[in-house]
Nucleic acid binder design. Structure first.
Lengths: 131, 131
DNA sequence: GTGTATGTTATACATGTAATATAACAAATA
DNA sequence: TATTTGTTATATTACATGTATAACATACAC
């Protein structure tokens, strides 16, 4: 798997997992219908607890990005992806707001901030990794 | 004061405080050198504990956005604002990355995402509030 | 000086979250 | 039947959040 954890980071492990799986789907490294490792294997591979993986998988299931079949295991949502809901828009704006304010205060111009966003987005879908 | 807290929110109170003060500085509602309420008054006004306000003020002090003088109280950084450091750039990119991936997965196009960022930024500095 | 308003520090407590460790359960399939 | 999967249930540890009190240190007004 392509997952890399930073156990020293202040971002919770399950969040890192969620983020990297979402990125994987976004950039095409994880195709719709593709199988993810069983929670126990992935947990062992990463040296973490089964429940931590489970929590991440469940969050993604609730968001409609993963499907969980008993015994079959976990796969990337095969058909329609969730789409941009009103709730998602709100959440996105709320988080962008915090970043934009911090950027503005430090003198980062509007266009630079927008360009930064665009460039980060592009880095993801072109699978370059970003750093 | 212009602070509004949502005690039901999952975002910690001190984070909400930090965000709103940063926004206040960004949009000009809080001018450089301007005085902020004493921690005890603000805490009482908002119906929260003194230490919660103190934590927020201290984070902003560490980031160089506030100055804390004993007895004089807390003021908005009067001279040079922090600027876009390497550390800030990294942190910004890391957080944008998570948002961009989530947006991409839901089919939000690159240009829409960039435009969204630009528009949120503009909302802040033009002091319209945003919602 | 005395008093007062400020931020600071220390201690304690309650609650919730993150992560781990075990164990057992439920369902699908070989 | 046995195995592999996700699920659920407890328990424990550590840490974060928020509160509550109390005391301390400094600057300023009087």
């Amino acid at each position: 798997m392509f997952i890399e954890l930073d156990l020293q980071s202040e971002t919770p492990i399950y969040t890192q997992l969620v983020d990297q799986i979402v990125e994987g789907i976004a950039c095409g490294a994880l195709q719709p219908g593709e199988q993810l490792p069983p929670i126990r294997s992935l947990a062992e591979d990463l040296g973490i607890n089964l429940h931590t993986v489970n929590k991440a998988y469940n969050l993604l299931k609730q968001e409609g990005l993963l499907q969980v079949h008993r015994k079959t295991g976990v796969i990337v949502q095969p058909g329609e992806m969730p789409g941009v809901t009103e709730a998602f828009e709100e959440k996105l704006r709320r988080q962008l707001r915090s970043l934009a304010a911090a950027a503005a205060v430090r003198g980062m111009a509007e266009e630079v901030f927008a360009q930064e966003s665009r460039s980060v987005y592009r880095d993801i879908i072109t699978n370059r990794g970003g750093e």
